[in-house]
Amino acid sequence: MTHELTGHRWDERIRERVGETVRRLVESGEETGLQVAVYVDGEQAAAVHAGTGGRVDGVPPRPLAPDSLVHSFSTGKGFTTTLVHVLAERGLIEYDAPIARYWPEFGARGKERATVWHALTHTLGTPQLPARLTPAELCDWDTMCGVVADLEPLWEPGTASGYHGWTFGWILGETVRRITGLTPGAALREYVSGPLGVADEMFFGLPEGAVGRAVPLEEGNWAARLAHLPESAPFRRYVVPNPGLWTTAELANRPDYLRADLPACGTTTARAAARLYAALLGEVDGVRLLPAERVERAAAVAVEGEDRILLGRYAKGLGWFLGLPAMGGDPACFGHQGSGGSIAFADRSRGLSFALTRTRLVGGSADTTARLLAAEVRPLVPRVR
Rank of each mutant, 00 (worst) to 15 (best):
G29R: 01
G7M: 04
D261E: 15
P379N: 01
D330S: 15
R236Y: 03
R213N: 11
Y277L: 03
A50M: 09
I93Y: 09
P184R: 04
G53D: 05
R358W: 04
P243N: 02
L324G: 00
L154A: 05
T175G: 06
E190V: 08
P234H: 00
G33M: 06
R101Y: 10
L124A: 11
A292G: 03
E306V: 14
V303P: 04
P207L: 06
G29M: 03
H164S: 02
P263M: 04
T32A: 09
M202G: 02
A272S: 07
V18W: 01
A355E: 03
H49I: 04
R15E: 06
L138W: 01
W117E: 11
D347V: 07
L5K: 13
T2R: 14
L372F: 00
R109G: 00
L289E: 10
L226P: 06
W141V: 08
A346R: 07
G341W: 02
A97E: 15
R113S: 13
I171D: 01
R225E: 09
E94F: 00
R24G: 00
L226C: 02
A272N: 06
L151Y: 05
A187C: 14
F168W: 04
E89W: 01
I99S: 08
Y39A: 05
E30R: 05
Y102M: 15
R294Y: 00
E231T: 15
A114H: 08
G364I: 09
W10N: 07
L154N: 01
S365W: 02
R378F: 12
R378V: 14
L34Q: 05
R90S: 06
E43S: 11
T115A: 11
A47G: 07
L188N: 13
G363E: 05
W103G: 10
E31H: 01
G110E: 08
P379S: 00
S339G: 13
P66A: 13
A97C: 13
Y39G: 12
H49N: 12
R350H: 11
D200V: 01
E30P: 00
A299N: 11
L69P: 06
G158Y: 00
L281M: 02
G165H: 00
G181S: 07
H8Y: 03
L138T: 02
A274W: 03
L311W: 07
A131S: 12
H71W: 08
E174S: 10
H228I: 00
A346L: 14
G165R: 01
R297E: 15
L262G: 06
L352R: 06
G205A: 10
I171H: 04
G317Y: 03
G42V: 12
V211A: 13
L280G: 02
A210W: 14
W103T: 13
F235A: 05
Q128T: 03
V59T: 15
D96N: 13
V192T: 14
G266I: 09
T248V: 13
D67S: 13
V176H: 05
G158L: 01
A346G: 15
V377A: 02
R177H: 14
A199D: 14
P263T: 14
A160Q: 09
A88L: 04
E43M: 04
A344M: 10
Y257W: 15
V70Q: 08
I14Y: 01
A252V: 13
G363N: 03
H71A: 05
L281P: 04
G146Y: 14
L251D: 09
W141R: 12
R23V: 11
E250Q: 12
